[in-house]
Design a protein around this nucleic acid. Structure first.
Lengths: 156, 156
DNA sequence: TCATGAAACTTCAAGCTTGAAATAATTTCG
DNA sequence: CGAAATTATTTCAAGCTTGAAGTTTCATGA
């Protein structure tokens, strides 16, 4: 889903609209490819991968709300994904004594091993899929997107 | 959903990985904002908007398969979205005499009017959300993404 | 204290999404 | 011609996603 209305016009704001459409098409294209490879080669999904990636960075564990904030998705969404990861034995959810509303989510040993393997492949895929972007160009683009992000965060 | 594994490392390919993560976060952030505004201000969704945008560009109509190819989504997906647009009276689906497997999808007059209004708001939103990207920068970024796209298309 | 409100999480309905299987119509070619 | 392959589309199950409503637990202050 990535069309956008009549980007062929010109006028004020049209450059930004065109940028947005290109950005969306690029990310959808790459995302679709990654999703398909995760499915066929590791029988997993992008959301599961994202949750595991977040947890891999935090061996001490993360709260459900940490996860949803970090991943930019809703609480209810994380509940479902973690449920599935738990049932696959890749993740544990432990109620805490301190605050019994919260639960700490952690990768299991299996989950950690599985993730490390998938992450290696994932990184190679991204390198391949963005192969026609030079390292130099990648750094410049990243810089622009980073400044977009920091401006975004200080709004509203 | 947009984490990515350990982007803090360095080494070959890491710059592209970092770029991918930034790209995904930026598009998810903007997309979420647009989705919410479409919902609250026009009671519609991004997928419906995208389908209508595609149809608005083609007054003669589009086949279901044209739509799914253009929007980068599966056939079955388009079926559902068009179903809903039809039930809302925004779109028609007419079987063709020439080839009775296909159906031509068109905006109704209502659909066309509704879309024009939403598209105006949409463009303004994008202009606002990308407001901290200069027009110059927007053109450069667009150029890079366009070259990514053309390289992508000539692969496999 | 204890009621009120806030916080963390889950549940739910509706819609989006995919990939695979099923239908139906058309095309190809032996 | 007629069987086989191809094409266009729909259907389906499973999973993702949101926002709203509900539950449980904790914090605050009159």
């Amino acid at each position: 889903m990535v069309a956008g209305p009549l980007p062929t016009h010109s006028g004020p704001g049209k450059d930004r609209l065109r940028l947005w459409i290109r950005l969306l098409r690029a990310s959808r294209t790459i995302e679709a490819e990654l999703r398909e490879r995760l499915k066929t080669e590791f029988n997993t999904t992008l959301p599961r991968f994202d949750v595991m990636a977040a947890l891999y960075r935090s061996p001490e564990g993360m709260l459900m709300s940490d996860l949803s904030r970090f991943l930019l998705v809703s609480n209810g969404n994380v509940t479902g994904i973690v449920d599935r990861l738990v049932s696959e034995g890749l993740v544990t959810r432990a109620r805490r004594n301190g605050d019994r509303r919260t639960s700490m989510v952690r990768l299991t040993e299996d989950g950690s091993k599985a993730f490390a393997e998938i992450a290696t492949a994932h990184e190679n895929w991204v390198g391949e899929l963005l192969g026609n972007v030079s390292e130099e160009e990648a750094r410049r683009l990243t810089g622009m997107l980073t400044s977009f992000r920091s401006n975004w965060e200080g709004r509203e």
